[in-house]
């Protein structure tokens, strides 16, 4: 049981949650309201950029999980 408990903390999902939360946290601390690019606050552009970061994290997770499954099947 001890082994199982340790194993669950190595789950790729938890690593991705930590990465996502860290990126979001950095943004919310930064919060650059007074800088403008093309008339729109940098806050808006940074959130827009994060759409693609979230997508990238999801792609990495899906590939990672499939590799683990393949490895276990072998």
């Amino acid at each position: 049981m001890e082994k199982l408990t340790k194993k669950k903390w190595k789950d790729p999902g938890i690593i991705m949650v930590i990465l996502l939360s860290t990126i979001a946290l950095m943004f919310w601390i930064w919060w650059p309201t007074d800088t403008y690019i093309g008339g729109i606050s940098l806050v808006g552009w940074a959130m827009f950029a994060c759409f693609f970061i979230w997508l990238a994290l999801t792609i990495i997770y899906v590939i990672w999980m499939e590799k683990i499954e393949k490895h276990e099947a072998e």
Partner: peptide, 10 residues
């Protein structure tokens, strides 16, 4: 945008 991903991770 993170709705499906966050649910999947967690």
């Amino acid at each position: 945008v993170a709705i499906p991903s966050f649910a999947m991770f967690l």
